[in-house]
């Protein structure tokens, strides 16, 4: 039985930039343990010398000319942005100022 403790849950929540409460961390911890436990059945499969799947469509590299084409206007693009200033997307401090 694998256990994923609340510390690990908080760690992965931070990795995916998700704010969670202590209560939520506890709930997810129990659920994650049973899910990961079930997934451990993959250990039964012998994958020695089996390559990992990389593409699924037997795709070939696709090349094209690098041509300049009209794209969405800046005004149109910014329609969905929550905050803008002088034609830019505005966000608070990214790097600390202390």
């Amino acid at each position: 039985m694998s256990t994923i403790d609340t510390k690990t849950v908080k760690h992965v929540a931070n990795l995916v930039r998700l704010g969670i409460s202590e209560e939520e961390a506890q709930k997810f911890s129990g659920q994650f343990s049973s899910i990961i436990d079930y997934f451990n059945m993959l250990n039964e499969v012998d994958t020695e010398n089996i390559p990992p799947a990389s593409d699924i469509a037997n795709a070939e590299n696709v090349l094209r000319e690098d041509e300049v084409k009209p794209s969405m206007s800046r005004e149109e693009f910014l329609k969905n942005a929550p905050q803008t200033e002088r034609g830019y997307v505005k966000v608070p401090t990214v790097l600390g100022d202390e």
Binding site: L42, V45, T47, I50, P51, P52, A53, S54
Partner: peptide, 11 residues
């Protein structure tokens, strides 16, 4: 997990 799953995906 991830790599193992990609290998079993091949199978």
């Amino acid at each position: 997990y991830y790599l193992k799953a990609q290998k079993v995906r091949t199978l």
